[in-house]
Nucleic acid binder design. Structure first.
Length: 103
DNA sequence: CTCCTGACTCCAC
DNA sequence: TGTGGAGCCAGGA
């Protein structure tokens, strides 16, 4: 049971079905996976994600509409790049952001 | 069992 | 608009 078995897969499954061009937050995903209040758990699952994973982890942002990495982190730039190339320019206004949200 | 940490969130200032 | 602090829950030491 490396990482709370069911929970991890449930969370991964939810993330995996975030449609192209959409974004979601940790809290939303946690709730959608059946674990409301466990936003941090989502982060934990993603953290242990292999680099070669095809999971759209980059579509996951925090509730403030921002990336949960410090700008100094390489991961921050990876996510920016992925979002920019697969979704759209990453300069979302609040309203625009709401539109991109999933569910 | 307790204490600390974290890819989080909310609500006051 | 920004900060700070409390709340939260699973894991590891």
């Amino acid at each position: 049971m490396q990482l709370s078995d069911e929970r991890a897969s449930a969370i991964l499954h939810v993330i995996n079905r975030i449609p192209f061009g959409r974004l979601s937050t940790y809290g939303t995903i946690a709730a959608a996976a059946g674990f409301p209040g466990n936003a941090r758990l989502v982060g934990k699952v993603l953290k242990r994600l292999p680099e070669d994973s095809t999971l759209p982890w980059f579509r996951v942002i925090n509730a403030q509409g921002k990336i949960s990495f410090p700008e100094t982190s390489p991961n921050y730039h990876r996510q920016i790049t992925a979002l920019t190339s697969e979704n759209h320019p990453f300069k979302l206004g609040k309203k625009h952001l709401a539109n991109k949200m999933w569910p």
